[in-house]
Write a protein that binds this DNA or RNA. Structure first.
Lengths: 249, 249
DNA sequence: AGTGTGTAATTGCATATGCAAATAACCGAT
DNA sequence: ATCGGTTATTTGCATATGCAATTACACACT
């Protein structure tokens, strides 16, 4: 567990004290300044450094724990949690995991890769500037040998370290990015489209066959990280979610 | 605001006291025993009745408020909240609202209705017993005069009061059910399908045109309430969601 | 080296107390 | 009746205190 600099926690004087503490620590976590595994100072230390009572510090930490940002254990202390890899319904999901949960063998092929400026029509479709340096990938994921999903991805080079050295032969780009980048916001859209000619060939389906299209764009503090277009063939794919009236169950 | 029976709050002796209180009140709310608008007893009353300190009661109530089950205001007290009508992304959404947010005029037609036992293929598709009494509806929703979504719905008669008297001319069944039924669990699945012949005619699209299919089943305490199949034509519909690594933003 | 065993660090929970903030309800003067 | 100010109720927040539960770590003993 990495040592933490206690004086990194700074209050802003607005609102209740417990919430100032909560936000201060939350910001350190989501900004990546305290990466997963970092030790959060014990309640007594925070209490002295911030001039608040232990119960007030406690309240802030309990809430952060309930939100999943930190993990607390008696005697061993509090550490920053790893962000949940997959998120219940429709989100940052690992395709290999998804396939293996179906009990099928996973494989993937990188069909093409290019590094440089984005083509105008790519930049437009993914909401990037033409001046951004990007890596553009097309990957076909297979389940049990058959095409499972076609991935077209653009990665913003400035947001990710070590991109040039990675060839994505072992790990598909989505999974690799989960480990090598930080994100704070994602947006996705789901729609139904008919397969275009080249897509249909790769997915081994007929042209015009209905496909589920998931488009996702990801940012870290307003800077784009990656944008991806996942095309799932036909009605044999469904996304399922379960919830109750007051949130997920 | 309805009066509440204080002695309805019963602790079960397992786990921390604040959590016993929290669960006790939560159960009264989600079971419908305390419907929305019901006044929750003030902290002092709960404190005396339960033999706990005010801070302990307070902790339970604060947490319930954060979860959205109750609303607390100084001096006026605490009341049971109305469940959120629409839920961020893909859930119990009101179609009229959805259309009006797009700035279009909303209308709907009840194309067919039948009350009685479900046809075998309907029962199978919606996960019902053949012996259940149901109402089966087909409704076309329009936006700006043009078909927006085709709804096929089965309502479990035993779970909803006043169903026989309602003709759904004013209010489409989804919205009506939100007000006249309780639900505790929902499951939905999204997939892409091609429009069948009769569906294509109603939606005024070509046969085989890709459509987004949302299937949702809803229960109240393990008893089915309703099941619905929403068919959205073509790629002009998208479901959009935004979130961060630690939950919705 | 291995094996208990005690100790201390750390979080978890509950209580009592006091004051602040919001505002519904009341009351009195016009 | 209407207006305006006062009061009382209820929640919100912070503190201090004490004890319980968990367990990493040091240390003694084989």
């Amino acid at each position: 567990m990495t040592e933490t600099r206690l004086d990194a926690v700074k209050l802003d004087g607005t609102g209740p004290v417990y919430d100032q503490i909560r936000r201060a620590i939350r910001d350190l976590v989501v900004s990546g300044e305290w990466p997963p595994g970092t030790g959060v100072p014990p309640e007594h230390a925070l209490m002295e450094q911030l001039g608040a009572s232990r119960m007030t510090v406690h309240r802030a930490l309990v809430q952060l724990a309930r939100e999943g940002l930190i993990i607390r254990r008696r005697r061993s202390g509090t550490v920053v949690a790893s962000p949940p890899a997959s998120h219940a319904m429709l989100d940052i999901l690992s395709i290999p995991e998804e396939v293996e949960q179906l009990g099928q063998a996973y494989a993937h092929d990188v069909l093409s890769r290019s590094d440089g400026r984005p083509a105008p029509e790519v930049a437009e479709r993914f909401g990037l500037k033409r001046s951004d340096k990007v890596t553009h990938l097309v990957v076909l994921h297979r389940a049990g040998g058959k095409p499972h999903v076609l991935e077209e991805r653009v990665i913003h080079a400035a947001s990710v370290a070590g991109l040039a050295e990675e060839d994505f032969a072992q790990t598909p780009p989505g999974d690799w990015l989960l480990k090598h980048s930080l994100w704070s916001q994602a947006e996705h859209a789901i729609s139904a489209v008919g397969a275009q000619g080249d897509e249909a060939v790769l997915l081994e389906i007929a042209v015009g066959e209905p496909c589920l299209l998931v488009e996702r764009r990801t940012w870290n503090q307003d800077r784009p990280v990656t944008a991806v277009r996942l095309l799932y063939p036909g009605p044999r794919h469904r996304f399922v979610g379960r919830f109750g009236p007051y949130g997920q169950v």
